[in-house]
Write a protein that binds this DNA or RNA. Sequence first.
DNA 1: CTGAAAGCGCTTACAG
DNA 2: CTGAAAGCGCTTACAG
Lengths: 355, 355
Amino acid sequence: MSQTANTPGKKVTTKQPVSIKDVARLAEVSIATVSRCVNDPDRVRASTRNRVEAAILQTGYSPNPLAQSFRRGKTKVIMVVLPSVGDPFFTEVMKGLREVANASGYSLLINETQFNTMTADEIGAMVVSRQADGIVLLASVSPFGTAVLSSDNNRRLPVVVGCEIVSLQAAGYPSVHIDNQAAAIEVTDYLLELGHRRIAFIHGQESSLLTKDREDGYRLSMLAAGLSIEDGWVVGGNLTITGAIQATQKLLRHRHRPTAIFCANDEMAMGCMHAIKSAGLKIPQDVSVIGFDDVRYAAIMDPPLSSVRQPAKDIGEQVMLRLLGEIETGRSTDAEPVIVPHELVLRRSVAPPVD
Amino acid sequence: MSQTANTPGKKVTTKQPVSIKDVARLAEVSIATVSRCVNDPDRVRASTRNRVEAAILQTGYSPNPLAQSFRRGKTKVIMVVLPSVGDPFFTEVMKGLREVANASGYSLLINETQFNTMTADEIGAMVVSRQADGIVLLASVSPFGTAVLSSDNNRRLPVVVGCEIVSLQAAGYPSVHIDNQAAAIEVTDYLLELGHRRIAFIHGQESSLLTKDREDGYRLSMLAAGLSIEDGWVVGGNLTITGAIQATQKLLRHRHRPTAIFCANDEMAMGCMHAIKSAGLKIPQDVSVIGFDDVRYAAIMDPPLSSVRQPAKDIGEQVMLRLLGEIETGRSTDAEPVIVPHELVLRRSVAPPVD
DNA sequence: CTGAAAGCGCTTACAG
DNA sequence: CTGAAAGCGCTTACAG
């Protein structure tokens, strides 16, 4: 078995694979006919087809996808750009993307933007070089917005944006997402109704627009309630656990300590909860916490974390559907954003303020 | 900008990109010379090169990667097969894989096996069709072990196994992983030293060998201590939170309820902790819990979760280094597994048993 | 140092 | 219904 097949030091054998020519020779037809049997069997007489199919079986032939991609100018690959595959929310979105893509014979090429902006250039390079048939943008990537996506360097690819408005430059692309601002208003209104007045917000990365709408919603709700947001109540948590821990520590030291903290995603809410408990405070008695995304960990936090549920997998599916539609028709779909529903999921991490 | 560039209903313009011919014409050289300027500039006279480079700049030419892939028979793509990108441990491994791959100009194509075995066939298909230059196997995929990887259907690809022995068929491939069995023995020995006698184990999927070594370690340690493992103390948690919750509920109903639960990964340990607390029991006073992988959430659990730290990113890096080495030399490396160090990380989820 | 030419494996009008 | 032929864009011996 593999031991014999792949002994150390031995040449990794990649014998000449069978090509369309071998099949043609064996079946005594032209390569054109073999190609037709593979791609459009109905156009070949049954008796011929049988002969070819027998030859294919006998040789174990399968078309060289590199040649096909080249010839057809299509890769059957979709590039997905997102902040981090490790975030459980994006994991869910990816599931939807993948299922729809695979069903149509497409593979996904993942590009994490992480925290270095360098990768934006890589993305640009890939776009330009057409390694993919289309792009799903789940991340805020302003740096290359105009430079690549909208440049008229002759090689534009279909793009669909998921989850949120990603950058001003990408505003013209079709997108699928919840109404982030409305959801954030609901969250903040809910906290206000419970009696909270000192409500803090932990946002994502400074440079990113990814959670901007959520911050806007928070601010609008506070404003509508006639409350002012004190300096230091809105802090950045970098979308990470450690970032949120630091942000929360700052909030807890604030001279007007918030009674509720609204985190722009659950990953940060998890860090926030940890920081609060580590400071010897109780959730929700001392501080209420609410997150965003309702990832799979939210319900098993201690106490269980309130959050905003997004139909993550659904978003992924719809994004991919639109993208594939655009790829296969060669026409961009209506750029009108598709707004999917969200839901406030209330758990025990939130309660009325004590004082 | 994009609005103008991509109006709904408008044809997605993909104008003819510039080819090597355009550059050659403009620079008044042959296409061979253009190719050399791109791939091996030293072999071209400086004056000629300058002319070509100017033409490249002027036209915005970049080689069509589809044509290159086809011509060279290389895709610069590595396929990664793993259970789930959503698992924070694999996220870390992927980080290492990706960094090394990208540094050498390779992209990653991700294949999740999830819980359906269908994908094993997909993998097989991809392997056979050579869409990738090599494969990283992080998942247990016995179904296609012999069928594809070791078959002599003329199209074998370099494979490196990460994290663990993946299947008997893959035993001959180079691999990078910790000594899972030894680590599991350490964990169990540690629990025994604390005085635990009723120790349960939650393993991964039934069909998978992925956590087999850990289970073996647990069993060996119990055996060495002269303890017998009661029926019902070893249960499957499917590597998921929900699976672990159910498994834990079973364990808590056992007539000899375990005083310590060893979970084959942290994801399951998180579910396990939730189930214990939901049952009104205290961690670690009533039940101690220990996980495996030391994912980023372990330290912020309540109480913080003890676990076995694997150098995840390191594993990823080393795996990719070996794989790229094999791809670029055309020779398989020594199949001797590389064992990387692990570390027992003790936190407050474990204590001596009370009774 | 450079060019003309073959060829990678396939698909697809174009004839017949 | 089938074949001969062109061509996708590149790389690479082979000459010169």
